[in-house]
Each structure stands twice: as structure tokens, then as C-alpha cells.
Simulated assay, not measured.
Amino acid sequence: MDELYDRIAISFDAQGLMRTLGARLLHVASGEVHIELPFSMHLSQQHGYLHAGATTSVLDSACGYAALTKAQRGLEVVTAEFKVNLMRPALGERFLAIGRVQNAGKLLSVCTGEIRAFGDGDTYKVIALMQATMVTVPK
């Protein structure tokens, strides 16, 4: 594994919420991170859809880790703010959150994210979009 993946994976593995949700780090590249979340009734809301809290949590993490790939070694990132558009019901067997850095500054990084819902195959629907600002902080 490469150094960038290892850096993100160590931090990801330390997140109790991602472990509780059953999320898994799938892809790490400079400025982009993918996190997979399998559907579970434990994460559903009253209509049987994936709960917006779970959707938002994995999107926030994907955006945050995308920003961390651009931060200098020895620094961390935290979320300053985000906006989420929930565009359709979160129905699927699994979900893929993709976070991308749009602009990485010394202190602030602006990221966008999307979460895709997959059924049985490889076709998907984008169910939510996020815009987030991450702040670089000392470790």
C-alpha cells in the first residue's frame, strides 16, 4: 500500500462512527476518497430508506479525508460547515460516498461529495450531494 492510503486508513480506522455504521474505505487518491456503506435496517429511517444521518456522516468523512490527502503531513482536518441536498430516497443494497477537493488552501479546503445508491448491479443513482469546507488544524 502507498503512504497516502496508509495515512488516510489509519485515521479512518480510528473513527468509531465509521466502524459502527459498517463503512469501509475503498479508494484514496490525491484529492479524492471513496467510502462504501452497505445497507442495514439498523441504519434505516421509518420508511425503510437509509437514514439521512448515515448518508451525511459518510459524505462528511469522504470530503474530510479527501481534504486530508491535500494537507501537509502532521496536520489534520475538521469540518467547518457543509450543506447537503438529499435528492431522492436512499434505497439500495450499498452506497458509495465520493469526496473530492475542489480547492485546497493552506487553512481551508472546499470539497464536494456525492453518494450513489447501488442495487444488485453496477447501475446507480446519485441520492445526495454535499458541499463542505474543511479546516486544516494541528495534530
Rank of each mutant, 00 (worst) to 15 (best):
R94P: 09
P138S: 13
L129E: 05
V58G: 00
V101W: 00
M18D: 09
H51N: 13
R94L: 05
Y5C: 13
V33Q: 00
G74P: 14
S40M: 04
P38L: 11
L4D: 14
Q131I: 12
T56V: 12
V110K: 13
C63G: 09
P138D: 01
S44P: 12
F82H: 13
A90E: 01
L129N: 13
Q102C: 00
A71C: 09
A71H: 10
H42F: 09
A104M: 03
S57C: 00
M130T: 10
G64D: 02
M130P: 10
F95S: 02
S57Y: 00
T20R: 03
V84I: 07
L43G: 11
V110S: 10
G22K: 14
K106R: 07
M87E: 03
A104G: 03
Q45W: 01
G92V: 09
T133V: 02
T69H: 05
C63A: 10
Q72P: 07
I127K: 15
A90C: 01
L4R: 14
V110T: 06
D122I: 15
E114Y: 05
V110W: 10
G92P: 08
R100E: 00
T123K: 03
E114P: 15
L68R: 07
T112Q: 05
A80K: 11
A80S: 11
G16N: 07
R73Y: 10
L86C: 01
T112D: 10
G16Y: 04
R73F: 14
R116G: 07
D120K: 15
Q15K: 07
R88C: 01
A80L: 14
G92K: 00
G92C: 03
P138G: 06
H42V: 06
S109Y: 00
L37K: 08
V33C: 02
L107T: 12
L43Y: 00
R100K: 00
L59Y: 12
L129P: 15
L86I: 08
L91C: 13
L50P: 06
K83D: 02
V137I: 14
